[in-house]
């Protein structure tokens, strides 16, 4: 018998610090990879991991026993990453006269994209808005089900299906646009 995430969270809410450490152990790398995929810098992703667990500590008493810990913690992570991402993009735009080689910046809309030295994955995903990128990562990389994604984003599974559909359409279109550019 291994403690489930949910049991550990209930124990932590009741005061068992060790239970928190075990949850941290289980989720730290996973949440870091998630944050790293969504954000531009490593340090921003590290901050995100810290913020997520800070919020877990602070809102431990709000955790409803029986609710999926994974959904809960990814919901918190999505919020943290959104907040940090906004700040990160603003900072980069503000400093865009400095060294931002490797980034493509659009000051007005805060679009910041890794272009130089970006790997094929970043190239492929660069047509997406931050929120779209995050949803796609949760779906294709974290392998979360549409129901879980609906929980995390506070919408319905139907809405998630529609959004995923649009995101993939956008990727398919972006892909062909890139291919066409290459042909010129």
């Amino acid at each position: 018998m291994t403690f489930s995430d949910e049991e550990l969270m209930v124990m932590f809410a009741a005061g068992t610090m060790a239970a928190f450490d075990m949850l941290y152990e289980r989720y730290r790398h996973r949440l870091f990879r998630f944050a790293r995929s969504c954000l531009i810098s490593v340090s921003a992703a590290e901050d995100a991991v810290q913020d997520v667990f800070m919020r877990v500590i602070r809102s431990a008493t709000q955790y409803r026993p029986g609710y999926s810990f994974k959904s809960w913690v990814f919901q918190i992570a999505a919020n943290c990453i959104r907040d940090i991402g906004r700040v990160e993009r603003k900072m980069i735009c503000r400093n865009s006269h400095n060294d931002t080689s490797g980034l493509e910046i659009d000051d007005r809309s805060f679009h910041v994209r890794r272009i130089v030295a970006a790997n094929e994955l970043d190239q492929y995903l660069k047509v997406l808005e931050p929120d779209e990128r995050m949803l796609l990562i949760l779906r294709e990389y974290e392998g979360l089900k549409t129901e879980t994604l609906a929980d995390i984003t506070g919408t319905s599974p139907g809405n998630i299906r529609v959004r995923l559909h649009r995101i993939r359409q956008k990727l398919a279109a972006g892909r062909s646009a890139v291919d066409r550019e290459g042909e010129i």
Binding site: F32, L121, L136, E140, H165, R168, Q169, L171, A172
Partner: peptide
């Protein structure tokens, strides 16, 4: 078909470019 193709492509790219864990 396009949806499946894109999904497979994205999953393949994630596999090819794994993120490291927290240092």
């Amino acid at each position: 078909r396009e949806q499946v193709r894109v999904s497979e492509k994205v999953r393949e790219l994630f596999n090819q470019h794994p993120q490291t864990g927290l240092s």
